[in-house]
Design a protein around this nucleic acid. Structure first.
Lengths: 187, 187
DNA sequence: GTCTATACTTGGATAGAC
DNA sequence: GTCTATCCAAGTATAGAC
């Protein structure tokens, strides 16, 4: 499409591969075919461009996650679907990785985009868990907020462990381990 | 102590704050008081210096974790101690953060140090969980390997979520959520 | 809107004197 | 062992012509 769009797409892909700090204008220009002049015409800074790319990634991620949470079935079915949606374990989570970078934490606009994304996911999980408790599927003494945080954390941590080990079976172990604990918490 | 030691200490602290890629020789020299000549006399490269610093961090971490796992008490007591040991949630895990950097993944010597560290922790957890099962504390149908991965992942993911939210209560929620699930899995 | 040229800083590392 | 000087590539951004 437009040059502006090409820039955003190239940045999306590069940030997904390399994170924010390690993605340079140079690479973005090479990947998009745009020139330096164009880039700084459309965006005032690398950060602004990254922000645009991140927003687009965010929309896409929310659409994917929503699929799992609107599936027919009980709470554990939806949670299982969320945790086992297609993931490239060794690549890590595009959002989780960003937030480990000091540069991203310092760029408040970037950090809060990621924060909002995760907050939204946890909120979805709270709904699913609360429904599971209300329907008598899950134990009434589960705290939905804490349980939701635990589930979301499992996924993020599974990426970290799998990358450290360079072995995606560690990712699967963590996910299955948490799902088994949830099974144990059935009412 | 020695200049060599000062370099390692400075690198340790900086990597803990900024990660690997974002820690420059410049900063290391400023923090350690050493000169460029000294640095490249003692270490052939930034990577070699980082490796030395990482090894030291690793030893320290193992010592801390060992305390939790040698505590008097049942399995859940030890696991709780491990998960609630003093953590600066918003800073993230010094090891987990490293492994999100492409540069670290590419530097095999660094990556495998982190990998070994986590593998060791998971192995400790497997022992604790297996003991809990054997003693009748935990349900016999728990898979120790998967459960261990889930617990280790909770911690790493809790850091990620807390940093994204810039709110350490998310960290606590995730940890407590997982501990509650483990309580539900008592025999 | 886009291009080329330019600017200035930092990163990572080497050379050679002391 | 340590210092200073130097090197070259890359990062991020601006200027000004077209």
């Amino acid at each position: 499409m437009s040059t502006r769009d090409d820039l955003i797409e190239a940045t999306r892909e590069l940030m997904w591969e390399r994170g924010y700090g390690a993605t340079s204008p140079r690479e973005i220009l090479a990947a998009s075919g745009a020139g330096k002049g164009s880039m700084y015409h459309h965006f005032p800074s690398k950060e602004a461009l990254a922000q645009a790319a991140l927003a687009r990634n965010s929309d896409q991620m929310q659409a994917e996650v929503e699929q799992a949470f609107t599936l027919d079935g009980d709470a554990l079915t939806q949670i299982r679907a969320y945790l086992t949606e297609h993931r490239e374990a060794l690549k890590g989570c595009q959002f989780g990785r960003l937030v480990q970078e000091p540069e991203v934490i310092e760029a408040e606009t970037l950090r809060s985009s990621v924060g909002d994304m995760f907050a939204w996911i946890r909120a979805q999980l709270v709904v699913v868990i609360s429904r599971g408790i209300a329907s008598g599927e899950l134990r009434a003494d589960l705290d939905p907020t804490r349980t939701a945080a635990a589930i979301a954390a499992t996924l993020q941590g599974a990426y970290v462990l799998a990358r450290a080990a360079q072995d995606s079976s560690v990712f699967d172990d963590a996910v299955e381990g948490t799902l088994a604990l949830l099974e144990a918490a059935r009412a």
